[in-house]
Design a protein around this nucleic acid. Structure first.
Length: 312
DNA sequence: GTCGTACACAGCTTTACATCA
DNA sequence: TATGATGTAAAGCTGTGTACG
């Protein structure tokens, strides 16, 4: 039985935060993705918007223990990890059938199933042997296809926490009639799929950023050419105000003009219109698109310098 | 502090299976 | 209907980081 992408319940959204202040750790990037299952929909409307962090989607392993403490509360809303699993699951395990629609899986990896629970280890070995000895003998590796129900439960569990502690793994395996190793592998593959999706979205975002910057670069080069042409004209020199002290914001590297004087402001050649209708480039870290008016006379609202470096 | 062991995980690969032309 | 190409997902393998004795 094939579980298509919709069954995975992934909802991709790429967004760009107004502030980066929501990032929780050092590995955060301005680009973040909501890959959570569609239960928590996020607007995809704007390309550069973002909802949940990648680290929220894929918590690092050091966070898994915290999650594990919480998860036991209502693990999968139906699994009581302290309760013995259903007899049917045990029977299946002992019979060497890992799942209702499974046949045989290959023999588990060398160290993969050294569970603390010896009984579990025995179960593992027993079920790994499969249905028939002859199949085991010729090293055939029949693959299990998870049923829709099994996939749904696993997805639900992944939604809660994308890593499992041994207790959870065991409980989930018993509930689904799978081997713990299979549950573990499913989670590993699921994390890999999530990460792959994230990479694809990152790629797409960077591509668009590159396109945007290319356009902006062309525009600026054109503007430089125009300015050079103006500079060569004597008329320009006559009307141009003398060079004044320009200040540059250290954080955003934008140039602010000095306070307008009564004499110069009236004679200054307007290089660009006060309200620039051109598309603005989105600069990571800036709260809003920056108007490309290097001679802007309006005060610049800039953030403290430290704001660039402190992501809290 | 160092070493050995066990374990979980990421990353990559292999392989079985499903689908389609 | 049979078959080969292709995509997907389950599972294997290896290296790395961490915890613990």
């Amino acid at each position: 039985m094939v579980v298509d992408k919709e069954d995975l319940g992934l909802s991709l959204s790429l967004s760009f935060p107004e502030k980066r202040a929501t990032a929780t750790n050092s590995s955060s990037s301005p680009l973040q993705l909501n890959l959570m299952p569609s239960a928590s929909p996020s607007p995809f409307g704007h390309l550069l918007q973002q909802k949940s962090s990648w680290t929220d989607t894929l918590p690092p392993s050091d966070r898994s223990m915290d999650a594990c403490r919480v998860e036991t509360r209502a693990f999968l809303k139906g699994i009581d990890v302290n309760r013995l699993p259903a007899a049917t699951a045990d029977a299946e395990e002992e019979a060497g059938v890992s799942s209702p629609n499974s046949t045989i899986s290959s023999i588990s990896g060398k160290r993969s199933e050294r569970e603390a629970n010896g009984e579990d280890h025995e179960l593992e070995r027993a079920s790994s042997r499969g249905i028939s000895d002859e199949e085991d003998g010729d090293n055939s590796r029949k693959k299990l296809r998870l049923s829709k129900d099994q996939s749904a439960v696993l997805e639900e569990s992944f939604k809660e926490h994308n890593t499992l502690n041994p207790k959870q793994k065991l409980a989930l395996a018993k509930r689904l009639g799978l081997r713990p190793r299979q549950v573990e592998v499913w989670f590993q593959n699921r994390r890999a799929r999530t990460k792959l999706k994230q990479t694809e979205v990152d790629c797409e975002y960077l591509k668009r950023c590159c396109e945007s910057l290319t356009v902006e670069n062309r525009r600026l080069q054109k503007e430089v050419q125009e300015l050079r042409a103006l500079k060569l004209s004597p008329q320009f020199y006559m009307q141009m105000t003398p060079p004044t002290t320009l200040t540059m914001c250290p954080s955003c590297e934008r140039v602010g003009a000095p306070p307008p004087s009564s004499s110069s402001s009236s004679t200054a050649v307007p290089i660009s219109t006060p309200v620039d209708p051109r598309p603005r480039a989105l600069v990571p870290g800036h709260p809003r698109p920056i108007p490309f008016n290097p001679w802007a006379t309006t005060p610049i609202q800039h953030r403290p310098f430290d704001a660039l470096h402190t992501r809290s």
